[in-house]
Design a protein around this nucleic acid. Structure first.
Lengths: 202, 202, 202, 202
DNA sequence: GATGAATGAGTTTTCATTCAT
DNA sequence: TATGAATGAAAACTCATTCAT
C-alpha cells in the first residue's frame, strides 16, 4: 500500500552505493570517477543516487567517515584486549601490517584519496584531523600507560612517538601504492617493533 | 643557427613555466589547476606552453622529476659531508625537519599531489619508485656503513629501517597538510632521533 | 458510494493544493517552483497531487482559471452596484488600486506569471484571452452606457478606451513588480480618473 | 601570425550570438531556450559562446541592456525633434504604435521575458528600473514643458501621467501577445491620443 | 614559432513524472 | 487511493587540446 520503506532498507541502499563507490574511487581516484561510473557500477539510477547523497563530494565524505570509524574501532578493540603496553603496541603492529598485507591495495588507495581531499577541503580536513587525532590519542595513552607502569623509559615523549608511529605506518602504506614497492612486511614489522622496543623499553 | 643558444633559451622558458606551475599545483592541486591558470600565472600563451610540454600531465611529470632530483641531491650532499653513520642520519633528520618546518606547506602539498598521481599513472609510478628507491638506498647504505663500522648493532635490518625512516618522514609531512596538525617539530625530531639511536646503536 | 461526498472532498483537496501553489508560484515563479516544493508546502504526497492534477502545467492552468474568475466576479459586483457610468468607472478604479495597494505584490507577480505562460501556451492563451475579453466587455459596456445616457461624448470609442484602461492598469501592476517602483497610488489613481473624466465626459 | 582578433571582430561575434538568442528567447522564452538551442541557432560551439558570455543569464542581461538602450535612444530622438509638448507626445505615440504594429510580436515577447526576469532577479530588476525610469523621465519632462509653456493645464500631475502612459503602452503590448488580441492600432492610438489631449490640454 | 579563439566531449546536478507496493 | 523511491532525459557549464593565422 505504500512504497515507504524501512530505515534498514534505506541503509542497505546507501551501503550498496558506498560499496560501488569504494571500488571505483580506489581504482580510478576521486576525480577520475564520474557519477556515471557510479551509476553503472552500482546499478542505481542517477536520481536514486542523488536521493541518497546530496552530491558526489557528500558521498565521498560519507565514505571517509565510514572508513575511519571502522579502522578506529578495530584498533581500539585490539588495544583494549591486551594487558601490557608493549603487547598493545605489538598487537597494533600485527593488525596494521596484516591489513596492509592482506586487504591488498584497495584500502591504501582509498586512504590516499582521502588524504588529498583533506588537504584541499576544509570540511574533509576537519574530519580527517579528528580521526587521526583519535587514533593518535589511542597510541599516546598506551605509551603513557607503559611509562607509568615502568615498562617504558620515563624520558620517552609519548605524544611525539605516537605521531611518529602513526606517520610511519601511513607512510609505508602510501609508499606501497605510490611507488609500487613490494615490501617484505614481516621484516618491516620486525624492524619497526624491535627498534621501538629497544628504543623505549627500560 | 646555434643550437646551444636555442637550447638554453628553451630550458629557461620551460623552467619559467614549471615555476609557475608549482605554485598553482601546490596551492590548488592537480585537477583544480587548469591550463588557463598556468597561462595566467606564467604569462605564456597556451600555444607556447603546448610548444614546451606535450600535455598537462607531461608538464606535471616533468615537475616531479625536477623536484625529486633536487631533494635527492640535497640529501646526498648532507650525507656525504659527514663521517660517522650516526652523524649522517642526524644531519638527514636536521635537513628534513628544517625543510618541513621552514618551506612551509607548499612542498608537502606538492608531494602529496605527486603521490596520488603516482598511484594512478604507471608512468609516474615508475618515476616515483625510482626516486624513492634512490633515497632509500642512500639511507640503507648509511645504516650498513654504521653496522660495518661497529656503530650500529649487527642485527639491524638496514633495508627495513631505511623504509621505515623514509615512511615516517613522508607520513609526518602528509599528516601536517592533511590533518592540519601543527607539530612541534623539535620534539618530534628529538623523539625520532633518540628512539632510533637507542634502538640501533651498540 | 455517494459521489457527492467524494466530489466535495475532491474539490476541497484540489483547493488546498491550489492554495499552496499560489504562494510558491508567486514567490518563486513557475519554473523555479518544483513539484517537490508543492509537496512540501501543501503537505500532500507526490502521488496525491498527480491524482488531482495531470501535470504541473495543468495545475497552473487551473490556478489561472480560478484567479481570473474571482477577479471578474469582484469587478462585476462593483460595477453592478453603481448607477451612473462615471461612478461605475470610478468604483472600478477604487477596487483595482486598492487591491494593488493592499494585497501587495503577490497577486501582481502571479499575474505576470500567467501572462508569460499565456504568451507561450496556446491553451493558456485561449483562456487568458477569454478572461481579458470578458473584463474588457464589462468596461466597454459601461462606457457605451455612459454614451447612451449622455454622460460621455458621442465620439468616444468605447472599445478602444476599454482596452487602454485595462492595459494601463495591468501595466502599472507589472511596472510595480518588475521595476520595483513604489508608486503613490492615490496620486496615480487621481491622475487617471481625472484625465479620463475630463477626456470623455461631456 | 596571430589569431588575436580585432575588437570589431569580437563585437561582431557577440552580436551574432545575441541575434540568435533574441530569436529563440522571444520564440520559446528564457527557460525553454537551452544553451544547446543557442549553439544550434547561432552556429557557434558551446565553448565559444561561453567565451563571449559568462552564463546564460549574463547573455540575457546583455540582451536586455541592448534592447532598452535602443528603445530609449529612438524615443529620445523623436522627442527632441519636435517643438511643442503635444507634438512630442503625439510623435511618441506614432513611434510606439508603429513598432508594435510592424515589428510584429518578437519585440513584445522579448519584453515580456525581460519583465518576468526582472521580477525575479534583483540584478535585472535594477537594470529594468533604471531603464523604465529613464523613459518615464523623458515623458514627464515633456509634460512639464507643456505645462510651463501653457499647452497643458496646471493641475496636471506630470509624474503620474507619465507613469500611466508608459503603463498603458506596456500593457497593450503585453495584452497583444498574451491574449492574442488583434488590436486595431489606429483606433487605439486615436483613442489614447484624443483622450489624453482633451484630458490635459487647456 | 607564437597566439588565443574555437572546439565538443564530458561533468555534475535537477526534476517532472511514473509505478510497485 | 495514497505513497515516495526510482527514473533518466536534459540542463548549464568546464577545460584540455587544436589549429588557422
Amino acid at each position: 500500500m505504500s512504497p515507504k520503506v524501512s530505515d534498514e532498507y534505506k541503509t542497505m541502499m546507501r551501503e550498496k552505493i558506498l560499496e560501488a563507490s569504494i571500488t571505483l574511487f580506489s581504482r580510478k581516484g576521486y576525480h577520475e570517477t564520474s557519477m556515471d561510473d557510479i551509476v553503472e557500477e552500482s546499478g542505481f539510477s542517477k536520481g536514486a543516487i542523488y536521493g541518497y547523497f546530496d552530491s558526489k563530494e557528500a558521498l565521498f565524505i560519507e565514505l571517509q567517515k565510514k572508513f575511519a570509524t571502522l579502522n578506529y574501532l578495530e584498533l581500539k578493540a585490539v588495544i583494549d584486549k591486551e594487558k601490557t603496553a608493549l603487547a598493545k603496541l605489538e598487537r597494533t603492529a600485527d593488525l596494521v601490517f596484516a591489513s596492509m598485507c592482506e586487504v591488498s591495495e584497495e584500502m591504501c588507495l582509498m586512504d590516499l584519496e582521502f588524504q588529498v581531499a583533506s588537504s584541499r577541503s576544509p570540511k574533509m580536513r576537519k574530519q580527517h584531523r579528528f580521526q587521526q587525532m583519535a587514533v593518535m590519542k589511542l597510541l599516546e595513552d598506551t605509551i603513557k600507560e607503559g611509562i607509568e607502569s615502568g615498562e617504558f623509559r620515563k624520558e620517552v615523549d609519548a605524544n611525539s612517538l605516537a605521531a611518529i608511529l602513526i606517520s610511519a605506518i601511513g607512510g609505508l602504506s602510501n609508499l606501497m601504492v605510490t611507488a609500487g614497492i613490494k615490501f617484505k612486511w614481516d621484516k618491516i614489522k620486525e624492524a619497526l617493533v624491535s627498534t621501538v622496543r629497544s628504543g623505549i623499553t627500560v
